[in-house]
Nucleic acid binder design. Sequence first.
DNA 1: GACAACCGATTACACCCGTAATAGATTACG
DNA 2: CGTAATCTATTACGGGTGTAATCGGTTGTC
Lengths: 124, 124
Amino acid sequence: MPHPISISDAEWDVMRVLWDAPGPITANDVVDTLKQNARTTKTYLNRLLKKGAVAFEAKGKVYWYSPRVSRDECVRTEGRSFLARVFGGDPAAMLVHFVRDAKLSPADVEHLRKLLKEKEKGGR
Amino acid sequence: MPHPISISDAEWDVMRVLWDAPGPITANDVVDTLKQNARTTKTYLNRLLKKGAVAFEAKGKVYWYSPRVSRDECVRTEGRSFLARVFGGDPAAMLVHFVRDAKLSPADVEHLRKLLKEKEKGGR
DNA sequence: GACAACCGATTACACCCGTAATAGATTACG
DNA sequence: CGTAATCTATTACGGGTGTAATCGGTTGTC
């Protein structure tokens, strides 16, 4: 994959809006959702365009934007970088930390235990 | 707490070396461990000093450095920021992702399951 | 005592980032 | 048609970051 696109903090906000949308949306849709300064948000969209993280289709003078990279791919990339930076690449240490630190509902806990159980036998 | 010190990527490498050390160490110790350019590493130490993330004691012309902020505090801060950025603040979603994505030894899995079990009853 | 080696401090520099204003084109309205 | 509104594109700018070279002082060595 020729893709290690790096998405900044503020750009993540924009990407999450795009990923959550059911289809292409306009810059103003993003602005309305984020309730941030319109100029600023449009700058982010532009930078994401340059990076190849989003695509657009022009209708009249308005652009309709959509993600060009998958959320999952970006989450994985960002996660690996975080893991390397903060935990020196040790995933178990990271999980221990988060399990300790996170506020989880009983249902969440149940879900995670199930996942771990599968992981235990299923392997992979 | 007057402390939301922000530590950059490259600075984390330095901090991890300091945290892992049993006591104060010199800039050259850090250089030797990281095997990065000495000038560069020293720049990082200087910036960390300015930020108040490390302290030093001069012995002769050599400085002996030690962390001034706890690893745990920094990990927590960084973790929260990551959680907000990538998962919009949903800890369960993050854990599910990492449990799925991480390579874990059977012992790791066992450990995590135990932690979750405690969390389930003990709460908090 | 002179000079080389070495150390931390200062300076450099290009790029990214958050934040936004301005410019230029196009459209909508009266 | 002319003017106002509205898009996107371009430009701005201060601060952080990765990367490193230079400066100025101290120290160790001959």
